[in-house]
């Protein structure tokens, strides 16, 4: 079984406003990306390149690097395998864990960036498990990486939401008490609904109907206004998530489908159809099929009845958990 990990996937990268104006713009106009410094000597990935994130500046596996170079190198490797070389994800994950350890030991990276480094390596492991079926990876290690990231940057709700999502998925599978996790989710939602909604709705919708959680997810989608929620990043091109709009609408369509709301699902599918890059989107045919026969889109969820999880039925939770938004544009 694949994990439902539509995580942290928000239309809003969490941004912290920097005072420097020029150094935090990425080539192409996005930005600032959190903890990137394009004025430094470090070589961050060039997201405007159609096919390459690893540019050869750094030694293989980022071996021997610490400090900002280790972070920039990790970013190059992460985005290279995350977007273009799925078979390479698991190895890259295994190679990057020692890089994190080296940086931790050297103590030469500020807390916020170090938090991001821990986050990123955990995200890579999670992507490898969720999408690439790399079931040998130690998922408990991703928990400890995320816990460390949260400890280093406790105010970053993006990190907190990723940790929470991982723990909830684990708790479901292991039959652990879900209540504390659910309380924590609400608490995050109250703090920042715009940032947490995309994450939370995707978790909640997988729960059995009788728990009431899927209805809550639908209500979150009702209330979510992407135009409003994008905040400071509304005008981004989203080089790192070119299909973010389509993916978000499609995920919303799955939420409505799950609760049997055919019209809501149809409306979200139409929005996905109107989103940027729709014609190049790997999930285009899924949307077209669903629109042509909306009942068939809803039916598998209904067939599960009231007391079963549907996590494994969600397209955005399994094979395309990340690529639904993060797939690269075709050349």
């Amino acid at each position: 079984m694949s994990v439902r990990l539509l995580l942290g996937a928000t239309l809003l990268a969490s941004i912290s406003c920097s005072s420097q104006e020029s150094c935090d713009q990425t080539p192409g106009g996005d930005g600032p990306y959190p903890t990137y410094d394009y004025c430094s000597e470090a070589a961050y990935p060039d997201f405007t390149h159609p096919r390459k994130r690893w540019d050869g500046t750094y030694p293989e596996r980022c071996a021997g690097l610490t400090g900002e170079d280790a972070w920039a190198c990790t970013e190059q490797l992460y985005w290279e395998v995350f977007q273009f070389d799925h078979d390479g994800r698991a190895d890259a994950y295994r190679q990057l864990v020692p890089v994190v350890e080296a940086v931790e030991a050297a103590g030469d990276l500020d807390d916020r960036t170090l938090a991001r480094l821990n986050l990123r390596v955990a995200q890579l492991g999670i992507a490898a498990i969720a999408e690439s079926g790399e079931t040998d990876l130690p998922v408990g290690q991703m928990q400890t990486l995320l816990e460390r990231a949260h400890e280093l940057d406790p105010d970053e709700i993006f990190i907190e939401a990723w940790l929470s999502t991982l723990l909830i998925n684990g708790a479901i599978v292991l039959g652990q008490d879900l209540e504390p996790h659910i309380d924590h989710m609400w608490e995050m939602y109250e703090r920042d609904p715009a940032i947490t909604t995309p994450t939370l709705m995707a978790v909640l919708v997988g729960f059995p109907m009788e728990t009431g959680m899927p209805d809550v997810a639908a209500e979150m989608v009702d209330r979510f206004d992407p135009e409003e929620a994008c905040g400071d990043v509304c005008d981004w091109e989203f080089f790192r998530a070119e299909f973010g709009g389509a993916g978000m609408f499609f995920s919303s369509a799955e939420v409505y489908a799950r609760v049997g709301n055919a019209e809501g699902a149809r409306a979200q599918l139409e929005l996905a159809r109107a989103a940027d890059h729709y014609d190049e989107w790997p999930l285009k045919s899924v949307v077209e099929d669903a629109l042509a026969d909306i009942d068939s889109f809803l039916a598998p969820f209904a067939a599960r009845g009231d007391d079963e999880y549907v996590t494994d039925l969600l397209v955005t939770g399994t094979d395309a958990a990340c690529m639904v938004c993060h797939a690269p544009l075709p050349e």
């Binding site: 994990v3 079931t135 998922v139 684990g170 292991l174």
Partner: peptide, 11 residues
Amino acid sequence: FSVVLGTSFLL
């Protein structure tokens, strides 16, 4: 032993 999330836990 192979457990959660189709993932291997090790003990």
